[in-house]
Design a protein around this nucleic acid. Sequence first.
DNA 1: CTCCGGATTCGT
DNA 2: CGAATCCGGAGT
Length: 187
Amino acid sequence: MGMRRLPRSFYDRDTVQVAQDLLGMHLVHVVAGVERVGRIVEVEAYLGPHDLAAHSARGLTPRTKIMFGPPGHLYVYFIYGMHWCANVVTQAEGTASAVLLRALEPVKNVEGRTNGPALLCKAMGIDGRQNGHDLLGEELFVRHPGGPTSPVRVVRRPRIGVDYAGHHWARRLLRFYIRGNSFVSRP
DNA sequence: CTCCGGATTCGT
DNA sequence: CGAATCCGGAGT
């Protein structure tokens, strides 16, 4: 049925707003006909080429082209020779902004740890094959959990592992997580 | 072409 | 705190 799937317009908004609104939403990946579902509990916003912590700060390259593309697509990158990390592309084409998915709370058919950007990709079956995937498709998307939802309190912190970006960008409060959630990578 | 370092994770 | 492990991006 695909009900409750977030529309393109959800992603085509201010990146900080999208990041916070993603908290509590369900990430869904259909693998071999089985729906894996995780509740998004921690994210980070990367604001575009002017954000020195963002990959797009290096300009349009083969790797970052998805970030420069239209909103509502998945940007997946390979890091440290062994890990995959996934982002949701936000705002208009050319803006090169995205939201890094840092932790999930397992909801359905999720095996293994999900409290870290590379761990969640492994558990959800996300790797380079999903780079550029349209989140309005049938196999990989984000949807509202539906039913009664308890309000979440959002904690704002500096992003993790971006000290190379300089004081200004390293100190910005662009990491968001659900207060008290036990699946957050680093409370 | 070579070289450097990383939006991480795990073990010591 | 350091190793693992390899590709993207920058420089020659």
